[in-house]
Computed example of a mutant assay.
Amino acid sequence: MAKLIIVKRLILFFLLGFILAPFASFAQQGEVKATVDTESIRLGEQVQLRLSATMPPQGMDILFPQIPDSFGHFEVVRRSPLDTTAQGNTKLLGQTIVLTSFDSGRWDIPALRFDIVNNGNITDSAFTGPLFIDVNTVSVDTTKAFKPIKGLRTVAWSFWDYWLYFAIGISAALIGIGLFVYFRNRPKKVVPVPVAPVVPPYEIALQQLQQLKAEKVWQQGDIKQYYTRLTDILRAYFEQQFNIPALEQTTEELLQHIKPVTILNQQRDKLRNLLSVADLAKFAKLMPSPEEHESAMQQAQEIVEWTKPAAEKAATAENGKEEIKQPAK
Protein backbone atom coordinates (compact mmCIF):
# COMPACT_ATOMS: atom_id res chain seq x y z
CA MET A 1 0.00 0.00 0.00
CA ALA A 2 2.79 2.44 0.93
CA LYS A 3 4.55 1.73 -2.36
CA LEU A 4 1.32 2.46 -4.24
CA ILE A 5 0.93 5.82 -2.53
CA ILE A 6 4.54 6.74 -3.33
CA VAL A 7 4.01 5.81 -7.00
CA LYS A 8 0.84 7.95 -7.22
CA ARG A 9 2.66 10.92 -5.71
CA LEU A 10 5.53 10.55 -8.16
CA ILE A 11 3.10 10.46 -11.07
CA LEU A 12 1.29 13.57 -9.71
CA PHE A 13 4.54 15.50 -9.31
CA PHE A 14 5.56 14.47 -12.83
CA LEU A 15 2.29 15.78 -14.30
CA LEU A 16 2.47 19.05 -12.38
CA GLY A 17 6.02 19.54 -13.50
CA PHE A 18 5.06 18.92 -17.12
CA ILE A 19 2.20 21.41 -16.94
CA LEU A 20 4.12 24.14 -15.11
CA ALA A 21 7.35 23.72 -17.03
CA PRO A 22 6.61 26.54 -19.57
CA PHE A 23 5.82 29.00 -16.77
CA ALA A 24 8.92 28.07 -14.85
CA SER A 25 10.93 28.35 -18.01
CA PHE A 26 9.62 31.88 -18.69
CA ALA A 27 10.16 32.89 -15.04
CA GLN A 28 13.74 31.66 -15.20
CA GLN A 29 14.69 32.77 -18.70
CA GLY A 30 12.17 35.60 -19.42
CA GLU A 31 12.98 39.20 -18.64
CA VAL A 32 11.00 42.46 -18.56
CA LYS A 33 12.62 45.88 -18.45
CA ALA A 34 11.67 49.55 -18.13
CA THR A 35 14.35 52.10 -19.01
CA VAL A 36 14.45 55.86 -19.62
CA ASP A 37 16.72 57.83 -21.90
CA THR A 38 17.40 60.41 -19.19
CA GLU A 39 16.91 60.73 -15.46
CA SER A 40 16.81 64.52 -15.38
CA ILE A 41 14.64 66.94 -17.37
CA ARG A 42 13.44 70.52 -17.07
CA LEU A 43 9.83 71.54 -16.77
CA GLY A 44 7.94 70.63 -19.94
CA GLU A 45 10.74 68.58 -21.46
CA GLN A 46 10.15 65.00 -22.50
CA VAL A 47 11.55 61.68 -21.41
CA GLN A 48 11.27 58.41 -23.31
CA LEU A 49 10.20 55.38 -21.30
CA ARG A 50 11.19 52.15 -23.07
CA LEU A 51 9.33 48.95 -22.09
CA SER A 52 10.71 45.61 -23.30
CA ALA A 53 10.05 41.93 -22.64
CA THR A 54 11.43 38.62 -23.86
CA MET A 55 9.09 36.74 -26.21
CA PRO A 56 7.19 34.14 -24.10
CA PRO A 57 7.17 30.40 -24.97
CA GLN A 58 5.02 29.31 -27.92
CA GLY A 59 1.31 29.17 -27.09
CA MET A 60 1.64 31.96 -24.52
CA ASP A 61 1.26 35.72 -24.77
CA ILE A 62 2.41 38.68 -22.74
CA LEU A 63 0.39 41.78 -21.91
CA PHE A 64 2.24 45.07 -21.58
CA PRO A 65 1.17 47.39 -18.74
CA GLN A 66 -1.64 49.81 -19.55
CA ILE A 67 -0.27 53.20 -18.54
CA PRO A 68 -2.99 55.90 -18.18
CA ASP A 69 -2.71 59.28 -19.93
CA SER A 70 -1.83 60.90 -16.61
CA PHE A 71 -0.30 59.25 -13.57
CA GLY A 72 1.53 60.65 -10.58
CA HIS A 73 3.34 63.78 -11.75
CA PHE A 74 3.69 62.63 -15.36
CA GLU A 75 1.58 62.95 -18.49
CA VAL A 76 1.74 60.72 -21.56
CA VAL A 77 2.56 62.65 -24.75
CA ARG A 78 2.41 59.72 -27.19
CA ARG A 79 2.76 55.96 -27.40
CA SER A 80 4.38 53.81 -30.07
CA PRO A 81 2.90 50.51 -31.21
CA LEU A 82 4.50 47.26 -30.07
CA ASP A 83 7.60 46.31 -32.06
CA THR A 84 9.69 43.15 -32.27
CA THR A 85 13.50 43.03 -32.35
CA ALA A 86 15.92 40.12 -32.37
CA GLN A 87 18.90 39.63 -30.04
CA GLY A 88 20.65 36.52 -31.24
CA ASN A 89 18.19 33.66 -30.87
CA THR A 90 15.93 35.70 -28.60
CA LYS A 91 13.15 37.98 -29.73
CA LEU A 92 12.19 41.02 -27.72
CA LEU A 93 8.89 42.90 -27.65
CA GLY A 94 9.16 46.63 -27.06
CA GLN A 95 7.15 49.85 -26.75
CA THR A 96 8.21 53.48 -26.30
CA ILE A 97 6.12 55.88 -24.24
CA VAL A 98 6.99 59.59 -24.24
CA LEU A 99 6.33 61.33 -20.92
CA THR A 100 6.53 64.91 -19.68
CA SER A 101 6.05 66.68 -16.37
CA PHE A 102 5.26 70.22 -15.27
CA ASP A 103 5.90 69.66 -11.53
CA SER A 104 9.43 70.21 -10.25
CA GLY A 105 10.87 67.56 -7.94
CA ARG A 106 12.12 63.99 -7.88
CA TRP A 107 9.33 61.72 -9.06
CA ASP A 108 9.22 58.00 -9.45
CA ILE A 109 7.80 55.83 -12.20
CA PRO A 110 6.41 52.90 -10.21
CA ALA A 111 7.10 49.25 -10.96
CA LEU A 112 5.14 48.13 -14.01
CA ARG A 113 3.49 44.71 -14.27
CA PHE A 114 3.63 42.43 -17.34
CA ASP A 115 1.03 39.62 -17.38
CA ILE A 116 1.59 36.17 -18.93
CA VAL A 117 -1.53 34.84 -20.65
CA ASN A 118 -2.14 31.18 -21.54
CA ASN A 119 -5.41 30.17 -23.24
CA GLY A 120 -7.03 33.46 -22.28
CA ASN A 121 -6.10 33.26 -18.57
CA ILE A 122 -3.41 35.21 -16.69
CA THR A 123 -1.04 32.58 -15.33
CA ASP A 124 1.95 34.63 -14.21
CA SER A 125 3.23 38.20 -13.83
CA ALA A 126 6.57 39.96 -13.99
CA PHE A 127 7.49 43.41 -12.63
CA THR A 128 10.02 46.04 -13.59
CA GLY A 129 11.97 48.00 -11.08
CA PRO A 130 10.96 51.58 -10.17
CA LEU A 131 12.56 54.51 -11.94
CA PHE A 132 13.25 58.04 -10.69
CA ILE A 133 13.16 61.21 -12.75
CA ASP A 134 14.39 64.60 -11.55
CA VAL A 135 12.22 67.44 -12.91
CA ASN A 136 14.12 70.70 -12.54
CA THR A 137 13.01 74.30 -12.85
CA VAL A 138 14.70 76.76 -15.18
CA SER A 139 17.52 78.47 -13.37
CA VAL A 140 17.30 82.26 -13.27
CA ASP A 141 20.25 84.54 -12.61
CA THR A 142 18.76 87.11 -10.25
CA THR A 143 21.94 89.19 -10.26
CA LYS A 144 21.32 90.41 -13.80
CA ALA A 145 18.86 93.15 -14.73
CA PHE A 146 15.64 92.30 -16.48
CA LYS A 147 15.83 92.60 -20.23
CA PRO A 148 13.14 94.57 -22.08
CA ILE A 149 10.47 92.74 -23.98
CA LYS A 150 11.39 92.42 -27.61
CA GLY A 151 9.11 93.99 -30.17
CA LEU A 152 7.24 92.19 -32.88
CA ARG A 153 9.25 91.04 -35.84
CA THR A 154 7.80 91.58 -39.29
CA VAL A 155 8.15 88.84 -41.86
CA ALA A 156 8.82 89.80 -45.47
CA TRP A 157 5.77 89.48 -47.69
CA SER A 158 5.91 86.58 -50.17
CA PHE A 159 3.66 86.05 -53.16
CA TRP A 160 3.87 82.28 -52.76
CA ASP A 161 2.22 82.49 -49.37
CA TYR A 162 -0.95 83.78 -51.02
CA TRP A 163 -0.75 82.40 -54.57
CA LEU A 164 -3.85 80.21 -54.09
CA TYR A 165 -5.99 83.21 -53.08
CA PHE A 166 -4.71 85.17 -56.09
CA ALA A 167 -5.49 82.25 -58.41
CA ILE A 168 -9.02 81.89 -57.03
CA GLY A 169 -9.67 85.65 -57.27
CA ILE A 170 -8.35 85.94 -60.84
CA SER A 171 -10.33 82.88 -61.95
CA ALA A 172 -13.53 84.27 -60.43
CA ALA A 173 -12.94 87.64 -62.12
CA LEU A 174 -12.33 86.02 -65.52
CA ILE A 175 -15.45 83.88 -65.19
CA GLY A 176 -17.50 86.95 -64.23
CA ILE A 177 -16.19 88.97 -67.19
CA GLY A 178 -16.83 86.05 -69.55
CA LEU A 179 -20.42 85.67 -68.35
CA PHE A 180 -21.00 89.43 -68.64
CA VAL A 181 -19.69 89.55 -72.23
CA TYR A 182 -21.65 86.43 -73.18
CA PHE A 183 -24.99 87.62 -71.84
CA ARG A 184 -24.43 91.12 -73.23
CA ASN A 185 -23.53 90.05 -76.78
CA ARG A 186 -25.64 86.96 -77.26
CA PRO A 187 -28.42 87.45 -79.82
CA LYS A 188 -31.73 88.27 -78.28
CA LYS A 189 -34.64 86.09 -79.14
CA VAL A 190 -37.05 87.92 -81.36
CA VAL A 191 -40.54 87.35 -80.12
CA PRO A 192 -42.81 87.19 -83.14
CA VAL A 193 -45.56 89.75 -82.95
CA PRO A 194 -48.86 88.04 -83.53
CA VAL A 195 -50.43 89.40 -86.65
CA ALA A 196 -54.06 90.11 -86.23
CA PRO A 197 -56.07 88.72 -89.07
CA VAL A 198 -57.22 91.45 -91.44
CA VAL A 199 -60.98 91.48 -91.70
CA PRO A 200 -62.13 92.54 -95.18
CA PRO A 201 -64.28 95.71 -95.27
CA TYR A 202 -67.29 93.84 -96.71
CA GLU A 203 -67.25 91.41 -93.74
CA ILE A 204 -67.16 94.31 -91.32
CA ALA A 205 -70.08 95.95 -93.11
CA LEU A 206 -72.13 92.74 -93.14
CA GLN A 207 -71.43 92.15 -89.43
CA GLN A 208 -72.48 95.72 -88.56
CA LEU A 209 -75.67 95.41 -90.63
CA GLN A 210 -76.49 92.10 -88.92
CA GLN A 211 -75.89 93.68 -85.51
CA LEU A 212 -78.13 96.66 -86.39
CA LYS A 213 -80.82 94.26 -87.47
CA ALA A 214 -80.52 92.27 -84.26
CA GLU A 215 -80.84 95.40 -82.10
CA LYS A 216 -84.32 96.09 -83.57
CA VAL A 217 -83.82 99.84 -83.49
CA TRP A 218 -86.75 100.83 -85.70
CA GLN A 219 -89.03 98.42 -83.84
CA GLN A 220 -88.31 100.50 -80.73
CA GLY A 221 -89.42 103.69 -82.54
CA ASP A 222 -86.00 105.26 -83.18
CA ILE A 223 -86.37 105.60 -86.96
CA LYS A 224 -83.79 108.37 -87.41
CA GLN A 225 -81.06 106.44 -85.60
CA TYR A 226 -81.86 103.31 -87.62
CA TYR A 227 -81.37 105.02 -90.99
CA THR A 228 -78.41 107.08 -89.77
CA ARG A 229 -76.51 103.96 -88.73
CA LEU A 230 -77.61 102.08 -91.84
CA THR A 231 -76.26 104.71 -94.26
CA ASP A 232 -73.12 105.30 -92.19
CA ILE A 233 -72.29 101.60 -92.44
CA LEU A 234 -72.62 101.73 -96.23
CA ARG A 235 -70.64 104.98 -96.59
CA ALA A 236 -67.77 103.63 -94.37
CA TYR A 237 -67.73 100.47 -96.50
CA PHE A 238 -67.45 102.53 -99.71
CA GLU A 239 -64.52 104.50 -98.30
CA GLN A 240 -62.59 101.40 -97.22
CA GLN A 241 -63.39 99.24 -100.24
CA PHE A 242 -63.33 101.81 -103.08
CA ASN A 243 -61.51 104.85 -101.59
CA ILE A 244 -64.53 107.09 -102.10
CA PRO A 245 -64.94 109.89 -99.49
CA ALA A 246 -68.53 108.84 -98.97
CA LEU A 247 -68.90 110.05 -95.35
CA GLU A 248 -68.28 113.66 -96.43
CA GLN A 249 -70.60 113.71 -99.46
CA THR A 250 -74.28 114.25 -99.97
CA THR A 251 -76.44 111.65 -101.64
CA GLU A 252 -76.14 113.26 -105.11
CA GLU A 253 -72.36 113.72 -104.77
CA LEU A 254 -71.98 110.11 -103.75
CA LEU A 255 -74.06 108.90 -106.72
CA GLN A 256 -71.86 110.95 -109.05
CA HIS A 257 -68.60 109.54 -107.61
CA ILE A 258 -69.65 105.91 -107.94
CA LYS A 259 -69.98 106.13 -111.70
CA PRO A 260 -66.30 105.22 -112.39
CA VAL A 261 -66.69 102.14 -110.13
CA THR A 262 -68.48 99.77 -112.45
CA ILE A 263 -69.39 97.09 -109.93
CA LEU A 264 -70.81 99.70 -107.57
CA ASN A 265 -72.50 101.69 -110.33
CA GLN A 266 -74.43 98.53 -111.21
CA GLN A 267 -76.24 98.98 -107.89
CA ARG A 268 -76.87 102.69 -108.56
CA ASP A 269 -80.68 102.53 -108.67
CA LYS A 270 -80.89 100.38 -105.56
CA LEU A 271 -78.51 102.70 -103.72
CA ARG A 272 -80.44 105.80 -104.87
CA ASN A 273 -83.71 104.39 -103.57
CA LEU A 274 -82.16 103.45 -100.22
CA LEU A 275 -80.42 106.81 -99.68
CA SER A 276 -83.56 108.75 -100.68
CA VAL A 277 -85.76 106.96 -98.10
CA ALA A 278 -83.02 107.42 -95.49
CA ASP A 279 -82.71 111.17 -96.17
CA LEU A 280 -86.47 111.64 -95.88
CA ALA A 281 -86.56 109.71 -92.62
CA LYS A 282 -83.61 111.62 -91.15
CA PHE A 283 -84.34 115.14 -92.31
CA ALA A 284 -88.04 115.29 -93.33
CA LYS A 285 -89.30 113.12 -90.47
CA LEU A 286 -90.84 110.69 -92.92
CA MET A 287 -92.24 107.57 -91.26
CA PRO A 288 -91.58 104.69 -93.66
CA SER A 289 -93.62 101.55 -93.31
CA PRO A 290 -92.19 98.39 -91.67
CA GLU A 291 -91.91 96.88 -95.16
CA GLU A 292 -89.74 99.83 -96.21
CA HIS A 293 -87.52 99.34 -93.10
CA GLU A 294 -87.01 95.70 -93.97
CA SER A 295 -86.46 96.55 -97.62
CA ALA A 296 -83.80 99.15 -96.73
CA MET A 297 -81.86 96.56 -94.70
CA GLN A 298 -82.18 93.98 -97.46
CA GLN A 299 -81.01 96.46 -100.12
CA ALA A 300 -77.97 97.42 -98.01
CA GLN A 301 -76.96 93.76 -97.57
CA GLU A 302 -77.44 93.09 -101.30
CA ILE A 303 -75.26 96.06 -102.26
CA VAL A 304 -72.43 94.79 -100.00
CA GLU A 305 -72.78 91.22 -101.23
CA TRP A 306 -72.77 92.38 -104.89
CA THR A 307 -69.74 94.63 -104.57
CA LYS A 308 -67.42 92.34 -102.55
CA PRO A 309 -64.33 91.05 -104.45
CA ALA A 310 -64.88 88.46 -107.19
CA ALA A 311 -62.71 85.81 -105.46
CA GLU A 312 -64.83 86.05 -102.33
CA LYS A 313 -67.97 85.72 -104.42
CA ALA A 314 -66.64 82.54 -105.99
CA ALA A 315 -65.76 81.08 -102.59
CA THR A 316 -69.21 81.94 -101.25
CA ALA A 317 -70.89 80.34 -104.24
CA GLU A 318 -68.75 77.19 -103.87
CA ASN A 319 -69.64 76.92 -100.18
CA GLY A 320 -73.28 77.25 -101.09
CA LYS A 321 -73.02 74.39 -103.60
CA GLU A 322 -71.34 72.13 -101.03
CA GLU A 323 -74.09 72.83 -98.50
CA ILE A 324 -76.70 71.87 -101.11
CA LYS A 325 -74.88 68.62 -101.96
CA GLN A 326 -74.66 67.47 -98.34
CA PRO A 327 -77.52 65.10 -97.43
CA ALA A 328 -79.92 66.22 -94.78
CA LYS A 329 -79.29 64.63 -91.41
Rank of each mutant, 00 (worst) to 15 (best):
D83Y: 08
S104F: 03
A34V: 01
G151K: 05
N119L: 10
G105K: 01
S80A: 05
M55Q: 12
D124Q: 09
R50T: 11
V76L: 07
T90F: 11
I41L: 03
S158K: 13
R50H: 14
F18E: 14
R153F: 10
Q95C: 07
F74T: 00
S158N: 11
Q29K: 14
F132T: 09
V36H: 01
V135S: 00
A126Q: 11
W107A: 00
A53D: 02
K91T: 13
L131C: 01
D115F: 11
F74S: 00
A86S: 12
P65C: 03
P148G: 03
T143G: 09
F102G: 00
P22I: 06
A156W: 05
L16P: 08
Q48D: 10
K150Q: 15
G88N: 11
D69F: 11
T96W: 07
V76S: 05
S125V: 14
I97Y: 00
L20D: 02
D69R: 10
S52P: 04
N119P: 04
G88D: 04
P57F: 05
G17Q: 01
E45M: 09
T128E: 02
E39R: 01
F159K: 02
P148C: 07
F64S: 05
T84N: 05
L43G: 02
E39V: 08
N136P: 07
G59A: 02
V47K: 00
F114P: 00
S139I: 13
W107S: 00
V98D: 07
Q58R: 09
D61L: 15
F146N: 15
L92I: 15
I116A: 06
A24P: 03
N136R: 15
K150D: 10
L49D: 01
A27Q: 14
N119A: 08
F26E: 01
T35E: 06
L82I: 13
D103V: 13
D108F: 04
I109Q: 00
Q28F: 12
V155K: 09
S40N: 12
R106P: 07
G94P: 05
Q46I: 09
P110S: 03
Q29I: 09
F114I: 04
P57L: 03
I116H: 03
D124M: 05
D115L: 09
T137Y: 10
L16I: 13
T137R: 10
D115V: 04
P68S: 02
S125T: 14
V140M: 14
A21C: 06
I97M: 01
D61Q: 15
R42V: 10
Q28S: 12
L131E: 00
R153H: 10
V140E: 09
T154W: 10
T154R: 12
K144A: 10
G88L: 12
F114S: 00
T128P: 06
Q48V: 15
